[in-house]
Every structure is written in C-alpha cells, then in structure tokens.
C-alpha cells in the first residue's frame, strides 16, 4: 500500500529543521500523511523523532521549514509557530512518550479535558448553570464515557488516573486525544512499557480507532513487530536526518536502515 496520490493529503511537512543552540536535532525532514493511513516514524534513540513531533504539534517553533495542515473540508493552514491548543482545535491531537496525564483527576475527567476545545460554556454560563451549559456538560460526559468504553477503561472511570496501570494510562492518553475530535492522531511510543499481551491489544486498538474514528495516525514506535504489522508507510530517522521511507517491506530490506539499527560498520 504505497502512498496513493488520489487520496486526500492531511499533513504536509517539508524541510523541517529544528536547532537547539548549536545542536541540529531535526535536519530538513519532510513527511506526508494521507487520509486513513497509519504512518510510523522510527529510528534509534535520540534520532529526533520526538522533537519532530513537538515541532509539528506546536510545543516548539521550528527553526525552518513548513508544516501544513489540510483539514478535510476546510482550507489548508500553515501551522508553524501556532499555539499547541490552536493546532489541537484544528484537528491534530497527540499523546506523550512520558505519559502526561492529570494524575489527581479522575479517568473520566481526563478525557473530558479533551472535550474542552469542542465546548463553549463560559464562566457566566457555568455560574448560572443554564440549560445549555447542562446539556453541553451532559454531552461531554457521554462522549467521554463512550471513548473510555472504546479503549476498555469504562470500569475505572471514577478512579484517579494516577492509580491506573502503565498500559491503561497509555490507553487513557489515546482516549483523551480522541476526545478532541481529531482527524490526525499522533502517538509518541504508545507501546513503551507494555508487555507483549498489552502490545498485541494495542495493535488491535489502533487499527480499530483508524476504522471507527476515521483518523489518520502517525506513530513513533520502537516495537518493530507492532510497526511492521500496522503501518502502511514508514519513515526512518537517524541523527536528525531522514534516511529512508517506504512500505514496511521496503524498509526491512533497506541497507541504510539495517545499518542504522544494527550498526554494521562505523561511519568513516
């Protein structure tokens, strides 16, 4: 399943470069995502994958390059340097490599935060508690609960999120991201710290989310079995540079990738 140009493009990144002082963490990286795709971004530790994510989602402002978002049915937007919450509002949601939940809030409340940008109750509405505010609250509770069911966390909806197991916290992060109604979901190492059984379930979950929520997914992952299983296309980064891209089969056979991962010979 190679990139199909007839399908609609959702994200277009070109020439993305990010410098931290003298260190070039991401060097001239380009990446496209099309509708309904699962794209993986892989590479050894420190290759700049998470920095790339942070540039795309607005946590960092890239030094150079273009990040363009093409929301279906709406005009394309260049999102460099836009605030993260604006980018999320436009329809791109993410999870974090080092889990960033709201530990002292309940599982359901965590997901409800995702609904924040899709609701509009103002301070005055909240104080006077009108019918509109109540209806909106009802709706965000219901939607959030549905999402919890989808990721299999409905039973622990009232638990503090800090009491969840590691794997459950990762799934909660996915539910919270989905609550923002994204068309593009960015997962930063969703399988990190999961046992093989959990990874297997995650595999099924991600495929199901793509089908049911109609989102395209970009994920960073180290678990090669998972990556090869679910992705349509793979990008490989090393030392901030993009060294390869292609289908899982092409990547498996790419000598550069093999070298990067197995370190066959030291560079001159």
């Amino acid at each position: 399943m190679a990139a199909n140009d007839e399908r609609k493009k959702l994200l277009e990144v070109s020439g993305l470069t990010m410098d931290f002082g003298g260190l070039r963490a991401v060097d001239n990286v380009g990446l496209d995502i099309y509708e309904g795709e699962i794209v993986a971004l892989i590479g050894p530790n420190g290759a700049g994958k998470t920095t790339f994510f942070n540039c795309v989602t607005g946590i960092y402002e890239p030094t150079r390059g273009d990040v363009k978002m093409l929301p279906p049915g709406r005009p394309a937007r260049r999102i460099n340097g836009m605030k993260p919450n604006r980018i999320t509002e436009l329809g791109m949601a993410r999870t974090f490599q080092n889990i960033r939940l709201f530990p002292a809030m309940t599982v359901l409340e965590n997901v409800m935060i995702g609904r924040h940008c899709r609701t509009s109750t103002s301070i005055v509405d909240a104080i006077f508690g009108g019918r509109k505010a109540a209806a909106e609250e009802r709706e965000s509770i219901d939607k959030s609960y549905q999402l919890l069911k989808k990721v299999g966390l409905a039973e622990v909806a009232d638990e503090f999120s800090r009491n969840l197991s590691y794997g459950a916290q990762r799934r909660l992060e996915i539910a919270r991201a989905l609550a923002t109604d994204p068309f593009l979901l960015l997962l930063d190492e969703p399988a990190a710290g999961m046992n093989p059984q959990e990874t297997h379930e995650l595999d099924a979950l991600i495929t199901r989310i793509r089908a049911e929520e109609k989102v395209a997914i970009l994920l960073i992952e180290h678990d090669m079995k998972l990556v090869m299983n679910i992705s349509d296309r793979i990008y490989v980064m090393e030392y901030g540079k993009e060294i390869a891209q292609g289908t899982p089969q092409q990547i498996k056979e790419n000598p550069k990738v093999i070298e990067a991962y197995l370190g066959e010979e030291a560079h001159a």
């Binding site: 919450n85 530990p103 924040h116």
Partner: peptide
C-alpha cells in the same frame, strides 16, 4: 459551580500538567 464545570476542570488540568493541558486544546 465553577469547579464542577468545564472551566474548573481546565484550571485543575493546568495545575496538574501545563504542557498536556495546552496540547489537549485548552
């Protein structure tokens, strides 16, 4: 009232984790 509303939840989320909070569209 505020605490149990969308506004109050956003405040608490901000207290818990600022980066996650803005990344979730607050």
């Amino acid at each position: 009232r505020l605490k149990n509303s969308r506004i109050g939840r956003a405040w608490m989320a901000l207290r818990e984790d600022e980066i996650a909070c803005v990344a979730m569209g607050v």
